[in-house]
């Protein structure tokens, strides 16, 4: 795969990315020669089974990992370390600072990453909490919130950073099915309001189709891009539209062509 040599500079440009990490015994190659672009306003989904390095790619975009080969550019500048221009939402519920209330968590994020006054930060934080329907819980500590609420605070906190791109690492994977569906809808509504750029990692085909504008599919061990597809759920009046069902089957075929009974 080669990048087109047009003068247009992609917003996030992942080029020939090879990532490795060490375990105590092995040097594992997580991804091999992965390339894709993210454009402004994209909801790009990294989709693949476990072991395809999708989370590792996200961490590399976040600046937590140095590529062994290739590069990642944001707005034409190479990413070298973590930064608030790439806000992250994690899968784990413990991502909120347990010693701060929901509101304080967002205020902290704003104040540490900008020159905002405390009063303005509180106002801003309240605005975001309202957007995720948690105004009533602004003074609750994380341990008193449910999993879904914690993830909503984390999303609000991340959006309050006003990052150039938002990185979501399976934020709904630990939630129950009903909550997950609700959160997907809420996230989509938030996107419609603010049109942020998002890279979203998931292993769920349904989630990919629900949330994505473009789906990058990866194969496992090591992760390599096997396909990129465009998708737009809002073009269909029903989730059971024949074209969507066909798309799902196509994705399954691409992901699991040589492992018929592969379980995600």
């Amino acid at each position: 795969m080669s990048t087109p040599s047009t003068p247009h500079i992609p917003f996030v440009d992942v080029r020939h990315l090879t990532l490795q990490y060490k375990t105590t015994e092995h040097l594992v190659t997580a991804t091999h020669d992965v390339s894709f672009h993210v454009e402004k306003g994209d909801r790009l989904i990294l989709l693949g089974p476990s072991g395809c390095g999708k989370s590792t790619i996200l961490k590399a975009i976040g600046g937590y990992m140095k590529p062994v080969g290739g590069s990642i550019n944001l707005n034409g500048v190479e990413i070298k370390k973590p930064g608030s221009d790439r806000g992250m939402v994690f899968q784990e519920f413990d991502q909120l600072l347990p010693w701060k209330t929901a509101l304080e968590n967002i205020v902290f994020a704003i104040r540490e990453t900008s020159q905002c006054s405390e009063v303005a930060a509180i106002q801003e934080a309240r605005k975001w909490l309202k957007k995720v329907n948690l105004s009533k819980f602004e003074n609750s500590y994380p341990h008193a919130l449910s999993g879904g609420m914690k993830q909503r605070v984390a999303i609000a906190r991340c959006l309050a950073l006003k990052s150039k791109v938002i990185l979501m690492d399976e934020p709904f994977a630990s939630l129950d099915a009903l909550t997950r569906q609700k959160m997907q809808e809420e996230l989509f509504e938030l996107w419609q309001e603010t049109k942020f750029t998002m890279v979203f990692v998931t292993h769920s085909i349904d989630e990919a189709i629900t949330l994505g504008t473009r789906i990058v599919m990866l194969s496992p061990h090591p992760g390599q891009v096997v396909a990129e597809l465009n998708v737009d759920l809002s073009a269909y009046d029903s989730r059971n539209h024949p074209e969507l069902i066909e798309l799902k089957e196509r994705i399954s075929r691409i992901l699991f062509k040589d492992q018929l009974d592969y379980v995600i």
Binding site: G63, P82, L97, P98, F108, A109
Partner: peptide, 25 residues
């Protein structure tokens, strides 16, 4: 590790990281 990554995400380093993330955590 998640909390550490959150701190790094806010570009907290050195003593600021110690006092604002590690000590309370």
């Amino acid at each position: 590790n998640t909390l550490r990554m959150v701190g790094k995400n806010y570009e907290l380093t050195g003593l600021r990281f110690v006092f604002k993330i590690l000590i309370p955590a």
